[in-house]
Amino acid sequence: MNNIIFLNIMRFLGLLFLQVLICSNINFMGYINPHIYLLFILLYPTSNNRLTFIFCSFLIGFIIDVFLDSGGTHAAASVLIAYLRPLFLKFSFGAAYDYQVIKFSNTDFTQRLIYFSSMIAIHHFVLFFLVVFNQNQILLIIKYALYSSAFTLLLCLLFTSLFSNKRV
């Protein structure tokens, strides 16, 4: 149990610094940045206290906002997907979620892909909507969200397969 808490704290700090020092400076094609810190929210243990989980998600988004001077955009998007996560878990993993025994490293690749892509897409859409903050530029928002979420999804899948621990 302590091991899991320690792992999540390390993941929180590691992803935070990876995001603000490296991933937010990539600017691929001028504006595409991966938001790798989402991995913390995606991979948080499913048998959790939801209050702690939502608060942790808020915290990681908020600290990133302070670093990037982006107001509360990351925090809002992170809190939203943290709150909606059970919905997506049920949608993607079906029966397995009801018993609360999901180990992300053991799940089917297709199920994991659906779960990741739906969560990331929602997060990016909300994020860029708040960043641009102008409903007249909805096409711009969709363009940003689409490209950035593809990049984030790719990196998240790479990271999970790179650090997958088959023994657990």
């Binding site: 988004g61 302070v66 001077d69 925090a75 809190v79 709150y83």
Partner: peptide, 28 residues
């Protein structure tokens, strides 16, 4: 309610950031 509270904090920070004068402490 926790979700609602944190979400509204985040939104209000966002709205604030779109105006010229920003929160005093929380910036880079």
């Amino acid at each position: 309610f926790l979700f609602l509270m944190l979400f509204s904090i985040a939104i209000s920070l966002t709205v604030q950031s779109h105006q010229f004068h920003r929160s005093k402490l929380l910036n880079s």
